[in-house]
Amino acid sequence: MAHRLPPFSALRVFEAAGRCGGFTAAAAELGVTPSAVSHGVRTLEDTLGVPLFHRDQRGMRLTPAGEQLLQEATRAFEGLSRCVDTLTQPRTGRRLAGSVAPTFATGWLLPRLPELRRRHPTLDLAISTEREHVQLGDGRFDFAIRMAAAPSGAAEWHRLAPVGLVPVAAAECRLTLAEALARLPAIHVMAAGEDWDAWAALRGVAAPDPSRGLRFDTVQMALEAAAKGLGLALARLPVCADDIAAGRVRSLDAPVEGCTAYWLLTRPGLLRQREGRLFAAWLREQLEG
C-alpha cells in the first residue's frame, strides 16, 4: 500500500522547528533561512489543512495537532538516522572535540575514559580544558560540559546532574563541622558560581570568614590544598566523589544540592549522529550510576 505523506522537505523543517522551539533555531540547524523554515511549515499546514503552530503576541507554540505530528515525525527521523548511521558508519568513528571544565575533566571524566574506550572502542575524544567561550557549531568543538544555573545561548543544553556541595578537610582531620568552621581557614574557589556563601545560605549557618584562607581558580586545586591540611574546601559532587570515596579528603557533612548543575552542551544535530548519541548516553549512565 502506498504511503500517504506530505512533502518530505516540509516535514523536515517542521520537525526541526518544533524540536528546536522556533524558526530561527531550526534554520541554524538546517543551514537555511528562517523564512525558508516558515514557508515550509506553511506549506505543511496548507497540505494538511490544520494549523501546527499558534502565532500570537506570546510567540509561537505548537497546537495539539502540531504536538502530535512532532512526536511522530521526531520518532520517524530518529529511526531513519539510526538506520543510516548503521549502514554508513565506518569501522573507525569520527573524533568528537569537546571543551570541558578543568575539574570535571581531571576529577571525573579522565578516570572513566578507560571504561568508555572498552564500551565504544571506535569513539575518540579530543578534550580542551582551556577557560574560553566556545561557539558550538563553528567547526572547533562538538560539545562542552559546563557548570551553570540555567541554559543560555543558542547551543542545545542537556542537564546531566545537580551539583552537591559538601565541606571536606584532610583525611586525618577529626574535627566536627562546627569545630572545623571555627578553627580551619576556608579555601575559596574564585571562578565558582557557588562558593561558601551559597553553601552557608543553603545549610542555614554562618559563612566562613572570607578574609582568611587560600584562593584558587579551580576546585581541583582547592581539593588538593585541603588534602594537604591547608584548610577546609567546598567539594562539588559528583566530580569530587572519587576523592572522598578514596579517602584523599574527608567529608564533614552531608551534601546539599546547590542551584547549579552540570550540563552537556552540543552543537545542533550532534545527538542525531551516532557518536554524539553514544557519548551522551554513556555520560548519563555514568552520572546516574
Rank of each mutant, 00 (worst) to 15 (best):
L5I: 06
R12I: 00
G22M: 12
T24Y: 14
A27L: 09
A27H: 01
L30Q: 04
G31A: 10
T33Y: 12
P34H: 04
P34R: 01
A36F: 03
H39S: 05
H39D: 02
R42C: 03
R42V: 12
R42K: 15
L44N: 02
G49T: 09
G49H: 02
V50K: 11
P51C: 05
P51L: 01
F53Y: 13
H54V: 14
G59E: 04
G59S: 10
G59V: 06
L62C: 05
P64N: 03
L69F: 09
L70C: 02
L70N: 00
Q71P: 00
G79C: 02
L80G: 10
R82K: 13
R82L: 08
C83T: 13
C83Y: 14
D85I: 14
T86H: 12
L87S: 03
P90C: 05
R91C: 02
T92K: 08
R94W: 13
R94K: 12
S99K: 10
L110W: 07
R112V: 03
P114Q: 08
L116C: 00
R118A: 15
H120Y: 14
P121N: 01
T122W: 11
A126L: 13
S128Y: 10
T129A: 01
Q135N: 11
D138P: 01
R146F: 10
R146K: 09
A148C: 02
A148Y: 02
A148D: 05
A154G: 05
E156Q: 12
E156F: 05
W157C: 06
A161I: 03
L177Q: 07
A182N: 08
A186W: 07
I187Y: 07
H188W: 11
V189G: 07
A191T: 15
A192L: 03
G193Q: 11
E194P: 12
D195A: 05
D195E: 09
D197L: 14
R203P: 07
A206P: 06
R212H: 14
G213D: 12
G229L: 13
A235P: 00
V239G: 00
C240D: 15
D243K: 02
G247H: 06
G247P: 12
G247V: 12
G247F: 04
R248T: 09
V249I: 09
D253F: 11
P255C: 11
E257F: 09
T260L: 13
T260R: 08
A261S: 15
L265V: 07
L270W: 10
E275S: 13
G276C: 08
G276A: 09
R277F: 09
L278R: 12
A280Q: 04
R284V: 02
E285R: 11
E285S: 08
E285Q: 13
